[in-house]
Design a protein around this nucleic acid. Structure first.
Lengths: 139, 139
DNA sequence: CTAGCTGCAAAGACTTTGCAAAAGT
DNA sequence: ACTTTTGCAAAGTCTTTGCAGCTAG
């Protein structure tokens, strides 16, 4: 019986999944990194915690977390799958040249969100507002 | 000397590229389909116009159009690369279950766009506002 | 104990590239 | 003519899967 204070771990266990070393390593990485990590980054960071961690398990664990609606895949300016927490909004500026990402808050999508939910009879769970352009350094 | 009224074709020629049957087929597909097409869809539609068209040429032509800043890659809810015209805004609702996409207009990002451009010294070229959730049919 | 989980390596899917032939200008 | 472009097939990259052994509960 592994004990942990992790919120994600509790939810995994509640859903009937085992808390293995691999899964706990992945979860710890996700909980300590607010960025949008991809599989490679999760694997690299996870191996520092649990060196035996394999790539296939990272793929399978993230698939599981997405199924449980705890995380959500995100695609920025390339086909790399990244992960963000499943709820709320995500707002960034993406540089088309160098790929740099700047986060911002306070987008005003809530009002629009309600209007669209009604008009399309759509249950909105999260949103993404992305501005593309050229950053300071690349100009 | 191939003649065409196509706007995209003019721009390609002006940039010093040859107007081949393959390229004209790809361009015609893009100009007659407002949706966000992926490579497969462009290939399939292009073959109806120019049956000899190959997959590699579709990849190369789209790469070219992106380089010339005429199109822009877009990633929705999967790693498939799709293409949209390079300017302006794009707004949709994406269903996480079935992948259905609903377009809408009138997002109010212009004001925010100006604020961010100034704050981050960023040259904004286009934006994407995407709401994720569950559509009418999947509920 | 026993079902679920893991790592490995092989298979699969998608994208890119080298090259000789073909085609636009 | 001469260079760019094309189609093909091979190579490359990323993701998924089958399987035998391992582990949490």
């Amino acid at each position: 019986m592994i004990t942990t204070t992790s919120d994600l771990a509790q939810k995994l266990r509640q859903a009937g999944y085992k808390l293995t070393g691999s899964r706990l390593a992945v979860i710890e990485v996700l909980e300590t990194h607010p960025e949008h990590l991809d599989h490679n980054q999760i694997l690299a960071a996870g191996k520092k915690i649990y060196p035996h961690l394999s790539r296939a398990t990272v793929y399978r664990t993230m698939e599981l977390l997405v199924e449980l609606d705890l995380f959500r895949p995100l695609y920025l300016s390339d086909p790399t799958q990244r992960f963000i927490s499943a709820s709320g909004g995500h707002h960034h500026l993406v540089c088309s040249k160098c790929g740099a990402i700047f986060e911002f808050e306070n987008c005003h999508a809530d009002q629009l969100s309600r209007e669209l939910a009604e008009k399309y009879n759509f249950e909105i769970r999260s949103h993404l507002l992305e501005f593309q352009g050229i950053c300071q350094n690349c100009r």
